[in-house]
Design a protein around this nucleic acid. Structure first.
Length: 267
DNA sequence: AAACGCATCAACCGCTGCATA
DNA sequence: TTATGCAGCGGTTGATGCGTT
């Protein structure tokens, strides 16, 4: 289609960023905020392309970044999210505060892939390496026992007819990684290639419909009630119907009712 | 101490999706 | 409806560091 290049490559620096460049970028964003990456380099006096500036800021200079090793809990959360979302690194990163998509992608490729392979699990499908057969028909799948459950439905107009296709993903109560459950999740996705993927996610079923306990945090939805990421506890158990919304925050997406699953782009 | 191989990760490249004219 | 511009995403690359021989 002949798109113009994102920048004048002949007049831009490439490769590792210098301290001075970092300082310039930080100073500019502190005073002007993020946005308009294309014009930023010129305005900030940087001989870099806008994409490069954006990447440097997001992956390295942002003040809220968490440096250092991944915790075991983060490992398992990444694995779990990857089993649900695939290589949607930005979505996964959205659930790990202080971590970037690039960092998670690198960490996946260098550490977690190997970890899963050592466990005998295919890191792509999250299924045992030697498994060849899949379940005949999946009606409902459950991630252990948990009050919170996320229902991934088919097209809403077909909802009633297609209960047999509905996946109920319940969070495990102990944050244990349940291989069989994960296997089943993969099976559903892999065994039903003609499954209509124009999906919707319904908020997890809540036993307490009175309103006070609506809106479990994501950590709890995954069964991480005691996790440091749990924001329910921090609210003294008053739940996270925070920000004045009563929507459910699933995978970081506020859902007032039914959440359009297209925004998650399940592979 | 030097050479080599492997692991890590910052950065780049090309593509896609969305907004807009 | 189509073309264009832009931001963002995911795959890949290459420089660097570290461990081993």
């Amino acid at each position: 289609m002949g798109r113009s290049p994102c920048c004048e490559k002949a007049h831009t620096n490439k490769g590792a960023w210098t301290k001075e460049e970092d300082d310039r970028l930080i100073a500019y964003i502190r005073s002007h905020g993020e946005g308009c990456w294309r014009s930023l380099p010129k305005a900030a006096g940087l001989l870099r392309c806008g994409k490069s500036c954006r990447l440097r800021w997001i992956n390295y200079l942002r003040p809220d970044l968490k440096r250092g090793n991944f915790t075991e809990e983060e490992d398992e959360l990444i694995i779990k999210l990857h089993s649900l979302l695939g290589n949607k690194w930005s979505l996964i990163a959205g659930r790990l505060p202080g971590r970037t998509d690039n960092e998670i992608k690198n960490y996946w490729n260098t550490h977690i892939r190997r970890k899963l392979l050592n466990r005998g699990i295919d890191p792509t499908t999250h299924r045992p390496m030697n498994e060849t057969n899949c379940a005949q028909e999946i009606t409902t799948i459950s991630f252990g026992s948990g009050a919170a459950a996320a229902a991934i439905n088919m097209k809403e107009e077909q909802q009633e007819d297609e209960d047999h296709k509905m996946m109920m993903i319940k969070s495990s109560s102990n944050y244990g990684f349940q291989e069989t459950d994960e296997k089943i999740t993969s099976m559903v996705i892999e065994r039903c290639p003609d499954l209509n993927l124009d999906l919707k996610i319904s908020p997890p079923h809540q036993h307490q419909t009175g309103g006070r306990n609506r809106g479990l945090c994501f950590a709890c939805s995954l069964g991480l009630q005691n996790s440091k990421d749990c924001s329910c506890n921090s609210n003294n158990g008053t739940s996270s119907s925070n920000n004045g919304t009563s929507g459910y925050d699933f995978l970081g997406l506020k859902a007032g009712g039914v959440l359009d699953y297209r925004s998650l782009e399940m592979k």
